[in-house]
């Protein structure tokens, strides 16, 4: 893998994690923000999501040879998924900024905030889908599969649900504020997602999966094999931590219990997705010439 791919790894991980956290944690609060005590958590989480997306945007510049022309990247929306990706990134950031301002300044109707939140969610989902489309290239068979879309969506989903589960422990939802509308439901969803991710990766990873399409992918190195095994181990660790949290039987895991369960699950899940993204970019190999 060429060193120039690191900004793209950071960009995709940050953007997908930000969108995932918005959908899993912020959006449910935004849609029920008329509850007393709901607003502080909404504003805090919007700032966090904005920071993720802004960080992603900053990293995207680092892989450009001529960043002064970045303003031109919206120029080919009709054909280029890269243009569409930038459009959806800007749309998501703009809509979340508007939502923050509406809630912070307490202006506009509830219906307006509701509409902006839903539009932001749709733009965020479109951002993740457009990212996956960018890599569906006939000239790069290792990327041109449904696994690309799956892995990008799973990064958003796992980061989002684990982030939502760990949010109280990380100070994003404080005691005395309105509880999250979904309660501890995200812990169960995270457990399901981790199980699905683990199963699909073990079966269909392009290089190491039991049912892999090995004929189109470059032979992996011993280092890549080690990274793959570490990724699986981290995913299993994240799953075990989530199961421990579920076994407590409490709707919200907070305090020391969270730091022994959902917080390490979030760290392990993010690290596993990061390693998965490193392996994804290592699949780059042109067909033909």
């Amino acid at each position: 893998m060429a060193g120039r791919e690191w900004p793209l790894i950071a960009f995709t991980l940050l953007a997908q994690s930000g969108v995932g956290f918005f959908l899993a944690f912020t959006l449910p609060i935004a849609l029920t923000a008329d509850r007393p005590g709901a607003q502080p958590a909404l504003l805090r989480s919007l700032v966090l999501v904005a920071a993720f997306l802004a960080g992603a945007a900053a990293f995207s510049f680092l892989h450009l040879g001529n960043p002064l022309n970045a303003w031109r990247t919206l120029g080919n929306l009709a054909d280029s998924w890269l243009s569409r990706e930038i459009l959806f990134l800007l749309m998501t950031m703009a809509l979340l900024t508007v939502l923050f301002l509406l809630e912070w300044a307490q202006v506009g109707s509830r219906a307006l905030s509701f509409g902006v939140a839903v539009a932001g969610a749709l733009a965020g989902a479109a951002l993740v889908l457009s990212m996956a489309h960018i890599y569906r290239l006939e000239a790069v068979p290792g990327w041109d599969s449904a696994m690309t879309l799956f892995s990008f969506v799973m990064t958003a989903a796992i980061a989002g649900t684990l982030g939502a589960a760990a949010a109280p422990a990380l100070g994003l939802l404080k005691s005395g504020e309105a509880p999250h509308p979904l309660g501890g439901g995200m812990i169960l969803v995270a457990a399901v997602l981790i199980t699905v991710d683990l199963g699909v990766v073990v079966l269909f990873d392009p290089n190491f999966g039991v049912l892999r399409r090995g004929e189109v992918v470059a032979a992996p190195s011993a280092g890549q094999r080690a990274i793959f095994l570490l990724r699986l181990a981290l995913l299993v660790l994240a799953g075990l931590c989530v199961v421990l949290a579920l076994c407590r039987g409490e709707p919200v895991v907070n305090g020391p219990a969270a730091w022994a369960t959902v917080v390490p699950a979030l760290a392990a899940g993010l690290a596993s997705e990061g390693l998965g993204r490193v392996l994804f970019f290592a699949l780059f190999r042109k067909a033909g010439l």
């Binding site: 040879g65 022309n69 031109r72 990247t73 890269l82």
Partner: peptide, 8 residues
């Protein structure tokens, strides 16, 4: 003159 150097 219009290239951003993204290498896509």
């Amino acid at each position: 003159r219009k290239c951003v150097g993204c290498r896509y």
